[in-house]
Each structure stands twice: as C-alpha cells, then as structure tokens.
Design a protein around this nucleic acid. Structure first.
Length: 645
RNA sequence: GCCGAUGUAGCUCAGUUGGUCAGAGCAGCUGAUUUGUAAUCAGCUGGCCGGGGGUUCGAAUCCCUCCAUCGGCUCCA
C-alpha cells in the first residue's frame, strides 16, 4: 500500500500502481468525470499513469490551468490526427497548448490549407474524438525516435530530438496517431466535445525568421458545447469592443492612407479624451514634484549614437533626415530620454538638487514593420507619458515608491482593479551582457523589491527579463474581458547616465553618477486610450467622457428651454450639448445612447414649467425628473468620486 | 518584412460561370411631420468597384504588380 496525500492534507491508502483516475473515482464519481490531469510530487502527469510510491497529489479539473493545459494539448494531437487524415504527407512541427486553446505548426507540403477547410477539419476532429481512443504513453530510445522521424523525412522532429539529451523520450499514441510529446494527456479523446478552429497563419519554425515558415493552425476546444458557445460569445463581445471599430463610430480617431500607416489622426472627441487623461496626470505629477520640459521631435544623429539608440533604432528605423546645405543628419526621436539627459547636463547639479524629475508627453517615432501595425496599440508615431527621474542611488527606493503611487492613482481613477505586477531582474547566474556594476544592480534590484514589499504588492519576479541597462517593474492590467495589457512601466537605467557622462557633486565635493528612472504610467497615450476603449466598451467614466450629457428637446417648441438648460450646465463646467434635430424623442434617445453619452436629459412642457429635466442614464433608462441644481450636483458628485486619488 | 486572407458610396454589405451589375440599408441633403423615453414618412445626392499594368470584342468579376487593411510569426509603448 502507498499513501496519497491530497491538497487538503488528507491522506488515503491505495495499492501500488494506483492511477490518478482511480484516486478520483475513490473520492467521487463526479470528480472522476471532471478530472483531466494530476500533479504527483510536483510533476504534472497523465491520470492513467500508475503511481508506485507515497506521493502528494493534486487533481486538476477544467477550472485550473493544468487541467486545461492537458485538455488543449490533447486537442492539438487530435487536430494533428485529423490533419494527417485529410492531408496525407504533412509534416508535424510542434503543437502546444496556449493560454486560450492550442495550435499546431505543420509543414503542409503540397497541400493548401485555408480557413475554408476549417469546418471539414473540425468535423473530422469531432468524429475522431467520438471514437474515444485512449492516449497511451510510450518511452523510447533516442535512436528509435530518430530513425522513425528520419524515415518519415520529418526534419523538424529530428531537429528537436537531436537537441534532447539525457531526457526520457516519450511518444503519445491514440488511435492511429503518434507524436513525440512530453505529455501529459487526457485519458482518451472522448473528453473533447466541442472544437473550434480560430485562425491560420504562417509561423517561422521555432520563431526564427531565418527558418522555414510553417502553417500554424490555432484552435480551442471544450469539454462541453455550452462552454464553446460562451467562448464564442466572448469573442463576439471583444469584436464589439474593438477600439478600431469604436474609435471610428465614436469619432475618436482615424487613419489616412495619405498621411501614412501607423500614424493616427486624433479627432476632436478623441483629442479631448486624451487631453483630459494627460491633464489628470499632469496635475498628479505637479504634486509629486515633477517639472514639465519640452523637447523637439528630431535630434542630431550624434545624440542617438551617444545614447546608443542609433544601434537599436538606427538601421531598423526611419532614415535620418538631413539639412539641405550642410548635410547634417537628424533623426526623428525614437525616445525622449536623450533629450532629457541633455537638459540635465545644461547645468551643474548638486546632490541637494536631486531627485530631479523631468516630465514630458513626448511624441516618438519608430519604424514598425508593416505587418505589425494594429489600430492604436501598435503605431509608428506615439506619445509617451514619459518622465525621467535623476536621483542618487540611495533615493531609488523612495522614488520607486512614489512612481508606484502614481500608477495606482491612475489605475484607481480608471477602474483597472485587476492587474499583475512583474519585476524583471538579471539572470541569476549573472553574465556580462548587463551594463553597470554588480553593486549598483544589486542596489537597484533591492530597491525595487523593497519598494514593492513596502507597498504590500504581490509581484511576479522574473529573472533574466531585465533590460541590459537595468531592472524594471511592469504593470499588466486585465480588462473587462480578462485580457492582459502591458501598460505602465518603471525602469532603472545605469546606461544613459554613463553614456552622457551625467554627474552631480556630492556632499564630499566629489563627482558622482546619478541613477536614472524611466517611467510611463500610461505607457503610451495611444495604447492607453485603446485599452480604455476596449475596457469600457466606449462607456467612459463620466469625468473622461468627451460629452457628459445631451439635452433632448421633445419638440422644437422647447429648444429655448433646452438652451437655458445647456447654459446652466455649461456654467457648472458640465459638458452638455443639445440635440435639437427634427426627430422624435425615441430616435434621439437611441442615437445618443449609441453614442455612449452618459446622461440624456429630456425636456418638454412639464420640465419647462417646473424648471427640471427628465434624467436618463446611459444603459440604465429613466431615472425620473430632477431640478437643474440637483442634476448638476449629481454630476459633480459622480465626477468627484471617480477621480478621487 | 514573411505567410494567409481581404479591399465595391462616409459606414455595413449584395453583386451568380467575364456580357444594362454598378446595387441595398444606414449616414448625408431637401421637404413634410412638432414629436414624451432605443429607428416618423417621402424624395434626392454619393462610387474610375484600393492604384497601376495586362488578357479579352467586352473586366468589379481572370492574370501580374504595387498599396492598404485583417489574422498570425518576430519585436515592442
């Protein structure tokens, strides 16, 4: 007998060789039906694998990542089986599970596979799934595996095998399908009840553009049809919220082929929205001791050679522009920091001056390859809510804490309550790809960790993700649909102070090197607005909404009163316009609801005589009548509660 | 940049195998209506069918090429 300990610390005895599935069954039949994979002593494995000794185990169902991982991984195999059946001779690359579903990279050979073939493939997958073929695991020697794939002429698998040393090589088989795979897998294919192929795209073998491009097919699958339906509904919702669609419909921004791809044009309403965000941050920054600076959109090429950006952005970016007579070369700025460094250098600095915090909504230009542009989230010209803090090493922690505060002020005001924080540090076994002394790195890394600890933040620490010039702290927010976005970033930089030879005079009357912090709580205004649009589905918080209220006159007769109402509200700094079109009330309500105007105020005979408005809240319907004063104070109160820092 | 798809009025889309195929709805304009909580009615104006080249008696439709967009790959704010 062996002892199996479950996560609730209960211990049960089983015969040696008991399987996860049997353990589940011994607990309850319903659990046995739902369980998908098992972790045995920290190792995720098949439910059907015998357990030979005492172990801590955890059973995974659909509701945890490990369970879905096994499910989707098996689905990838199922898809590969279907593909091989329909397209004989294709070569398999890799087929992992991903955050939402799975994909398989294949070399289709002579076959041409497109979205049009998806229904056929899905049908085949379901047909194969219904056969409930068992997944079986088989350990083989490297030679066996190699000879098999060599005879098939599959150089992808061969390559993978050749790189695997001293590892157990396993194959997973089900039905007539067999694949090199680490597992784990479901007990059988019958678990997979619903399948949807999502898209097809080229993907370089192992992500390297020097390699051959394979065909990648993405899909998702579920243990119940209902879950697939829900997922598809969520995709529909995401489509409705797409900032590119809403940006056009709400008149926020546009693009013009003539102006150029990736160069957004902000329409009046979008510009208002963005300025409101900018001013909000400006006000916060004043409180936090930032000083605004302004710098030009271009800079001498030498500036970027000094900063090192020319190496990174020079060749792969917009070509330098040159003066007609002298032929001096200037670049569109890809970063604001070099300019800010020069501002720092414009005067001698004392340790008493530090920290110095320069803030600028600086527009930068970077060449992005044409296939990478995407609405406002990936553009060629964008504005960072940039600031650079020049401080002494001993001030790092305090400065970090202050920046974190600013980030939270913003997240609070904009209703981003779900986020992850990532600390990116050096690789553990330090190497020489990092600039700056070990001592300084350690100081900076500790400063970040202490700052986050002091703020009581839960952080994910990732080694090896730091930039070459310093460690960083990134904020990933989850939007209303649970999608992750990388927004704010705080980065320590030892590189630029070195390159620009920045100094301050210390209390010892000696020259010292300041540390620099780059930080952008929004990230970029373009991306942030895009995320805001998708997060709120265009229903911006009242304080941000370009137009807060619309006054709907029941008929022309009440336009004079409507004008009176709008004057009243405008005097209170409430952004209200009149809809005096010659339309019925129902029509005006519909149009303004669709324009996401937060408050609709209906005025007619009754309201005019009582000096009131009938209030309708966007998406919520009729709220009854109130006096103008009551309405104005309602708005004021709502705005105040939203931007409470 | 690469792979695949797409590109018809401001927007969303129809246009069968090349032969009155240049259409619809919404938006816009004009007029009527004077309206009470999610679309009032009527009329009208919009398009070199993404650009260029070719095949053909004839091209929105077939071919080539460029551009843009979309989905990915790589990278990043």
């Amino acid at each position: 007998m062996i002892e199996i300990k479950l996560p609730d610390n209960s211990v049960k005895k089983y015969n040696e060789g008991v399987t996860g599935l049997e353990i589940a069954k011994s607990i309850s039949n319903s659990l046995a039906k739902e369980v998908l994979a098992i972790t045995v002593n920290g190792h995720l494995q098949d439910l059907t694998l015998p357990i030979e000794e005492d172990a801590d185990v955890k059973l995974h169902k659909w509701d945890d990542q490990e369970g879905r991982h096994a499910f989707w991984h098996s689905s990838a195999h199922l898809m590969a089986e279907a593909l091989e059946a329909i397209y004989p001779g294709i070569k398999l690359g890799i087929g992992p599970s991903i955050e939402n579903g799975f994909y398989y990279d294949i070399d289709p050979g002579e076959h041409n596979i497109s979205e049009n073939n998806f229904p056929e493939i899905e049908k085949k997958m379901i047909e194969l799934a219904r056969q409930k073929n068992r997944f079986s695991r088989k350990e083989v020697t490297s030679e066996e595996a190699l000879s098999r794939y060599k005879s098939e002429g599959n150089r992808y698998k061969t390559e993978l095998l050749e790189e695997m040393e001293n590892q157990t090589i396993t194959f997973y088989n089900h039905g007539n399908f067999s694949d090199l795979c680490r597992g784990p897998h479901l007990p059988d294919t019958g678990y997979i009840k619903a399948v949807k192929l999502l898209n097809i795209a080229g993907a370089y073998w192992r992500g390297n553009e020097k390699n051959k491009q394979l065909t990648r097919i993405y899909g998702i699958s579920f243990p119940k049809q209902k879950l697939l339906d829900e997922y598809l509904q969520m995709l529909e919702e995401a489509k409705k919220r797409d900032h590119r669609k809403l940006g056009r419909e709400l008149g926020l921004f546009t693009f013009s082929e003539k102006v150029g791809p990736g160069l957004p044009l902000w329409l009046p309403k979008g510009a208002q929205l963005r300025e409101r965000l900018e001013n909000f941050l400006r006000n916060v920054q004043v409180e936090y001791g930032y000083q605004p600076v302004l710098t030009p959109h271009i800079g001498h090429k030498e500036l970027y050679i000094t900063s090192g950006h020319y190496d990174k952005y020079g060749e792969s970016s917009f070509r330098p522009i040159s003066t007609p007579i002298e032929g001096e070369e200037f670049m569109l700025k890809p970063m604001n920091c070099p300019h800010h460094c020069e501002i720092y250098k414009s005067s001698p600095r004392s340790y008493k001056d530090l920290p110095i915090r320069y803030a600028e909504f600086g527009t930068v230009y970077r060449y992005e390859q044409s296939g990478e542009l995407h609405g406002l989230t990936r553009v060629r010209g964008f504005t960072q809510d940039d600031a650079h803090i020049f401080c002494r090493p001993d001030q790092l922690k305090d400065e970090f804490i202050k920046v974190i505060d600013i980030v939270f002020i913003i997240f609070n005001a904009l209703d981003f309550s779900d986020f992850e924080i990532q600390v990116s540090l050096r690789e553990k076994n330090g190497n020489d790809k990092y600039i700056g002394s070990d001592e300084n790195w350690e100081k900076a890394e500790n400063a970040i960790l202490e700052a986050t600890r002091e703020k009581g933040l839960e952080v994910k620490v990732v080694y090896g993700e730091a930039a070459f010039y310093g460690p960083k702290l990134d904020f990933m927010v989850k939007d209303a649909l649970g999608r992750n976005w990388q927004l704010g970033t705080i980065q320590v930089d030892y590189n630029l102070p070195e390159r620009f030879d920045l100094e301050y005079t210390g209390s010892d009357n000696l020259k010292h090197r300041p540390v620099m912090i780059h930080r952008a709580p929004f990230g970029s205004m373009e991306r942030f607005v895009a995320v805001m649009i998708e997060h709120t589905a265009g229903k911006f918080p009242l304080w941000l909404a370009p137009q807060q209220a619309v006054i709907i006159s029941v008929s022309e007769k009440f336009n004079v009163y409507a004008k009176k109402v709008s004057n009243f509200l405008n005097n209170y700094d409430i952004r209200a316009l009149i809809d005096d079109r010659n339309e019925k009330v129902g029509r005006k309500i519909r149009d303004n609801e669709m324009s996401r105007i937060p408050y609709l105020l209906i005025v007619g005979e009754k309201e005019e005589s009582e000096n009131t408005v009938s209030v309708r809240r966007q998406g919520e319907g009729d709220k009854g009548t109130m006096t103008l004063e009551q309405f104005a104070s309602l708005i004021k109160k709502e705005v105040k509660s939203q931007i409470k820092t």
